[in-house]
Structure formats: structure tokens, C-alpha cells
């Protein structure tokens, strides 16, 4: 039941985006609402300081994974609707897998390097 699992992960990633994007939005853009909010969370030093903390690295990478999976799965669904042949479907699937993995590695490099580099 691979495709069912993929779709369930799609639903789960939607919830994940809501949660982690919510955290990002609250801390970074709605800081006035927080009692212990920083003065300027969008400043370079503030961003570097957050990225060096392990908890934020986990949050960023999870948000990256959920956002990437959710977006690519949805885009794949749209493309498959206008795809007729099995061979084309296989090509489309592999393109999405390769691009997804490549973007994930590239985008997760920065927070990992800041935290541990």
C-alpha cells in the first residue's frame, strides 16, 4: 500500500507545515505578541543565534522536509493528471525523487553547518 502511505504522509506533512510554520511565524514575525520575544528576530545576529541552537535546527529541517514533500507531492499529482503513459509516469516520479532529495540536502546544509560547523 505504498501510494496510500505516500498520501497519508502528504496529509501529515500538511499538519506539520501548519505547526512548524506557525512556530516560525510567531517567533520571527509576531514577536510583539510574545512576552519573552526578542527585539528584532529578523536581524542577522538573531537569526544566526537561533540557527546555532539544536532545537531550531530540528525545527528548520522538519519544516523543510514537510514543506518539500507536501509541495512536490501536490505538484506531482497535478502533473500525473495529464500524463498518459506508464513510462512518462516513471520518468516524472524519478525526477521528483531526485530533485526532492537534492534540494533537501542542499537546503539542510546551512542550518547543520551553522550549528555544528
Amino acid at each position: 500500500m505504498l501510494k496510500t502511505r505516500m498520501h497519508l504522509l502528504f496529509l501529515l506533512s500538511g499538519i506539520g507545515i501548519a505547526i512548524f510554520l506557525g512556530i516560525h511565524m510567531t517567533v520571527q514575525h509576531l514577536n510583539n505578541l510574545l512576552i519573552t520575544g526578542e527585539a528584532d528576530p529578523t536581524s542577522w545576529s538573531s537569526m544566526i543565534g537561533r540557527a546555532a541552537r539544536e532545537s531550531w535546527v530540528v525545527i528548520y529541517i522538519l519544516l523543510l522536509f514537510f514543506g518539500l514533500y507536501h509541495g512536490l507531492y501536490g505538484l506531482r499529482g497535478i502533473i500525473l493528471e495529464v500524463t498518459r503513459t506508464e513510462r512518462t509516469i516513471r520518468v516524472v516520479n524519478w525526477i521528483f525523487v531526485i530533485c526532492g532529495i537534492a534540494i533537501f540536502i542542499w537546503a539542510s546544509y546551512v542550518p547543520i553547518a551553522l550549528a555544528y560547523g
Binding site: M1, L2, K3, T4, M6, H7, G77, L80, E81, I89
Partner: peptide, 13 residues
């Protein structure tokens, strides 16, 4: 039937 409907053009479309 689940195997038949669980395709790229099945129920999840």
C-alpha cells in the same frame, strides 16, 4: 480491489 484502486490514477487522485 484495494490493489486496483491504489494506482497513480486511482482513489488518491
Amino acid at each position: 480491489r484495494f490493489k486496483i484502486t491504489e494506482t497513480d490514477h486511482g482513489v488518491w487522485r
